[in-house]
């Protein structure tokens, strides 16, 4: 669990540490062992193992909340939010489809707004609250694991095939519903057009967004 520490104080100062130093102090942590499935925890520990510091002081300390968990990490300044999620935090639900902001597969919510994580530098997310597909299902008590209404609708409407654009579609759809852009099928189509689905599931994506907008919990 090298990419995460348990200090939740947003004002905590992160001293300038080298990546190697940072790793050596946290590699044995295993903070998440009791929280995450062991395979994920192992993956996270692994995701940063053996990393080298970028050359020439090109790293920054970053404090960002992802799916309600605070992460304090030192990132290479070149790191996109997408690569931070996928390569550092082992949150691979957010997908890399084009890495150029053209396909929407990497859509996440940053402070409740949908953004392309591939076009967002991680360091810009200082203090931000990021919600990814992994944080959408209920994570509390008796409803733990209960899917978001739009996730359920995607399954019921069969709004995906290969599943690769799906997390981005769902995050976009959640925002689309919150934004109130679901007045008609045409409006949904328009406001969901930043997310490409190459399997061609658009008709059913609209069905799913419509279903969730109509009845589901947000």
């Amino acid at each position: 669990m090298s990419a995460e520490i348990s200090n939740d104080d947003p004002d905590v100062e992160v001293p300038e540490v080298s990546r190697r130093g940072f790793l050596s102090t946290t590699a044995a942590g295993g903070v998440a062992a009791g929280v995450l499935p062991s395979s994920l925890a192992a993956g996270r520990a692994d995701a940063s193992a053996g990393r080298a510091a970028p050359s020439g002081g090109q790293s920054s300390a970053l404090s960002v909340t992802v799916n309600g968990r605070r992460h304090q990490v030192t990132v290479d300044n070149r790191t996109s939010l997408l690569d931070l999620l996928r390569e550092r935090l082992a949150l691979t639900g957010t997908k890399k489809g084009c890495d150029q902001g053209a396909c929407g597969a990497c859509t996440v919510l940053v402070d409740d707004r949908r953004v392309n994580a591939c076009l967002t530098l991680a360091v810009r997310c200082e203090g931000a609250e990021v919600t990814t597909i992994e944080g959408l299902a209920a994570q509390d008590g008796e409803r733990d694991g209960e899917l978001h209404a739009l996730q359920r609708a995607f399954i019921e409407q069969d709004a995906f095939q290969c599943g690769y654009c799906t997390p981005g579609q769902i995050m976009s759809g959640v925002a689309c519903i919150r934004e109130g852009h679901t007045g008609s099928r045409e409006e949904i189509r328009e406001w969901m057009s930043g997310n490409i689905c190459r399997c061609g599931c658009y008709v059913k994506i609209v069905n799913a967004v419509e279903q969730a907008a109509r009845g589901g919990r947000d």
Binding site: G93, I133, A137, L147, Q151, F154, T166, P167, I170
Partner: peptide
């Protein structure tokens, strides 16, 4: 495999 795909797993 729907649940795996809509939860990013």
């Amino acid at each position: 495999d729907g649940r795996l795909k809509v939860t990013g797993q």
